[in-house]
Simulated assay, not measured.
Amino acid sequence: MPTPTELNLHQQSRVLEVRYDDGSHFNLPCEYLRVYSPSAEVQGHGPGQRVLQLGKEDVGIDKIEPVGNYAICLHFDDEHNTGIYSWEYLYNLGLNQERLWQEYLDELFKAGQARKKPS
């Protein structure tokens, strides 16, 4: 599994830039990271229990805290900070960003919800 060589948080654009030692480079929007948080609050406690996150268009990250040598904890400005993002989880979010984002948009549509334009 590739390991990150660089993490850059771009506060204004609300994007976490992650570079891996295999040459991979991902720009992960804070909203995307928040709606796919690995926390039990978002993912539930078992298969099929994921909770649809609403109103996260303007969410930002206040702090990034290392968790050992294998992960980070993202402290979002909506006070969510219980997800532990392993290097592998971040890598998979990057690899599958297009598909996962579309799945999120489809879930919103099915729930009769719409994203507002971020400010």
Rank of each mutant, 00 (worst) to 15 (best):
M1G: 14
M1Q: 08
M1N: 07
P2C: 04
T3Q: 12
T3M: 12
P4G: 10
P4K: 11
T5E: 01
E6Q: 09
E6N: 11
L7K: 12
L7N: 10
L7P: 04
N8W: 08
L9R: 05
H10R: 06
H10Y: 10
Q11K: 14
Q11L: 10
Q11I: 07
S13G: 00
R14I: 03
R14C: 06
V15C: 03
L16A: 02
L16Q: 05
L16C: 01
E17N: 12
V18K: 06
V18P: 04
R19K: 14
Y20N: 03
D21R: 03
D22K: 06
G23H: 08
G23K: 10
S24I: 01
F26M: 02
N27G: 11
L28D: 07
L28W: 05
C30I: 01
C30A: 14
E31M: 10
Y32A: 07
Y32K: 10
L33P: 00
R34L: 06
V35I: 14
V35D: 06
Y36E: 04
S37N: 07
S37W: 03
S37H: 02
S37F: 02
P38Y: 04
P38R: 09
P38G: 06
S39P: 05
A40T: 10
E41L: 13
G44V: 11
H45R: 14
G46I: 05
G46R: 12
P47F: 02
G48W: 04
R50H: 09
V51D: 05
L52E: 02
L52H: 04
L52K: 03
Q53L: 07
L54P: 00
K56V: 05
K56R: 13
K56I: 02
V59N: 12
G60I: 10
G60R: 10
G60D: 09
I61S: 07
I61E: 09
D62M: 14
D62Y: 12
K63T: 09
K63R: 15
E65M: 14
E65W: 08
E65P: 06
P66H: 08
G68Y: 11
G68I: 06
I72P: 00
I72D: 08
I72E: 11
L74A: 03
L74H: 04
L74Q: 08
F76K: 04
F76Q: 05
D77I: 09
D78R: 10
D78P: 03
D78W: 09
E79K: 13
E79D: 13
E79I: 07
N81W: 12
T82G: 14
S86C: 04
E88Q: 15
E88I: 13
Y89A: 11
L90I: 01
Y91G: 00
N92H: 12
N92Y: 08
L93N: 01
G94A: 00
L95P: 00
N96V: 01
N96L: 06
N96K: 13
Q97T: 00
Q97K: 14
R99A: 14
R99V: 13
L100A: 03
L100C: 06
W101S: 14
W101E: 13
W101Q: 15
Y104C: 08
D106H: 12
E107I: 00
L108I: 01
L108S: 02
K110N: 13
A111S: 07
Q113L: 08
Q113W: 07
Q113T: 03
A114L: 10
R115L: 15
R115F: 01
P118L: 09
P118K: 13
S119N: 15
